[in-house]
Computed example of a mutant assay.
Amino acid sequence: MRTPETKSTFFEYMGFNSTITDKFELALPLQEHLLQEDGTIHPGVFSTMLDITMGATVSLATNSFAATINLNCSFLDLLPKEAYHAETNILKEEGKYVTAEGMIYDQNRGLVAKGIGTFKTTPRKDIKEGGDC
Rank of each mutant, 00 (worst) to 15 (best):
T121S: 06
C133S: 12
E87F: 02
G102D: 02
I41A: 00
Q36R: 15
T21D: 10
E37H: 09
K114I: 13
T21Y: 07
P29R: 09
T118D: 06
P123H: 10
Y97D: 00
D106H: 09
I69P: 01
N17P: 05
T118M: 14
I127Y: 05
F16N: 00
G55T: 02
R109W: 01
M14Y: 05
E5A: 13
D22F: 10
D77N: 13
F11C: 05
G130Q: 10
I104W: 07
I116P: 00
N108Y: 10
L78A: 02
T19P: 01
T6F: 07
N89T: 10
N72E: 13
K114H: 09
R109P: 00
E87A: 05
Y13M: 11
T53D: 06
K92D: 08
M14D: 04
E101N: 09
M1V: 11
F11P: 02
L30M: 14
H85C: 07
G110C: 09
G110A: 13
M54Y: 02
T9L: 15
Q31I: 10
L60W: 06
C73P: 05
L71I: 11
F24E: 01
K128F: 14
A113H: 00
T68H: 04
G44H: 01
D106L: 12
I116Y: 01
I20S: 04
T57E: 01
I127M: 06
M1I: 12
M54K: 06
D77A: 07
M54I: 04
A86I: 01
T6H: 08
